[in-house]
Design a protein around this nucleic acid. Structure first.
Lengths: 196, 196
DNA sequence: GCCGTAAAGCTAATGTCATTAGTCCTTCCG
DNA sequence: CGGAAGGACTAATGACATTAGCTTTACGGC
């Protein structure tokens, strides 16, 4: 038996291929092994177990996404940057819906994921620096941006919207909501009903 | 062996109990059977298979959520109604994070889920009628509201936000974003960059 | 009160996975 | 050339889901 020349990277590649082709639910070690042309137990030389493989896939996806957001933000600022990042985010999800779904089904609490998550967050925070938000408000703004974008992405990737053609305009409205909301003044007082 | 007096409802009850106690990943037929004091194959008298049980759990959760939203919307209109519904939505998720997570991991494309989904959508649409949105814009608005709320809920339920105390204010900002965005004029032209 | 039927449970069996243990080549370094 | 390390394999175990076929209970009609 000639060496398969496997590596952790190669295993993750195969895993992503399966996710792309058959959805996140099809990601099993058995399937990855078959795709890699190897017996299932051999994978344990490159990956601790299925949970770790899922983590690695998630990390890969986060990195891809981060890179795309960085490119989109490059050379832009203010509303323009927020808009571009939001569009880039969605474009990643529509390009790789299964990958994104696989990522979002992971528990996000893993410390191992922290680094990738921080880098992603950095991009978002960088984009938000154009607005005059102090510490806590910056956090709130980032969470809202993330929630809006992620919520739309998850629902779209899950096929929860009826008509696919029309989602462009729906997203455009969401972008306007977020951009408009970032301009508006921060909350009058912590934990108080707003605006009044 | 005295009859266990099981029923589909009772099986779903047990399933929800497991989800609440040990998270969506712990929902197996074996676990449900043990909780119900019955052998695993017996469950098939009440439920077609694991996939259907998951569907039933999802449906139950959607119904609970819908009921809560209806109550919140009752007797309110306009911004007030939107605000109340958004708060009620989040309160459900913080009350039952595992349940909500179990629901969101389901593929939402099932026709069997359609009815429950429609009822939930109805509440949202009812709340949006206060704004002068024509047909398509109403759909866009509903999608955005749903995306924002769902995105925040998923992230919060997954523990993706660092500090739990502070999420109140984050959500308040999100509510203001949405309410503000609904007030703003609809997009100038389909598929064109907005506001200008 | 007795019988038959259908529903509700059970045990046994199968197949798919993940995971572990133990073995065997192959590569590469000295 | 020898030997160690690492990569891959087979065999074995254990958790689950799911199917098939059997048994018992509840209950309506007589």
């Amino acid at each position: 038996m000639p060496r398969a020349g496997l590596s952790t990277e190669a295993v993750v590649d195969a895993a992503i291929g399966i996710v792309d082709a058959h959805g996140p639910g099809a990601l099993t070690l058995a399937a990855v092994a078959k795709a890699a042309g190897v017996a299932a137990p051999s994978l344990y030389k490159h990956v601790r177990n299925l949970a770790e493989l899922r983590d690695l896939v998630t990390r890969r996806v986060m990195e891809e996404l981060t890179e795309r957001l960085q490119r989109a933000a490059m050379g832009r600022s203010g509303d323009d940057a927020v808009r571009a990042v939001m569009q880039a985010y969605r474009s990643y999800v529509t390009d790789h819906p299964s990958r994104y779904a696989a990522m979002s089904q992971q528990p996000l609490t893993d410390p191992r994921m922290a680094l990738a998550g921080e880098r992603l967050l950095e991009v978002v925070l960088a984009v938000l620096r154009g607005y005059d938000l102090d510490g806590p408000d910056l956090v709130h703004a980032a969470r809202c941006l993330r929630s809006a974008v992620h919520g739309f992405a998850v629902l779209e990737a899950a096929g929860a919207f009826g008509l696919p053609e029309d989602t462009e305009n729906s997203y455009e409205l969401l972008v306007r909501m977020v951009v408009g909301g970032l301009r508006a003044a921060p909350p009058p007082e912590p934990n108080e009903p707003p605006i009044g």
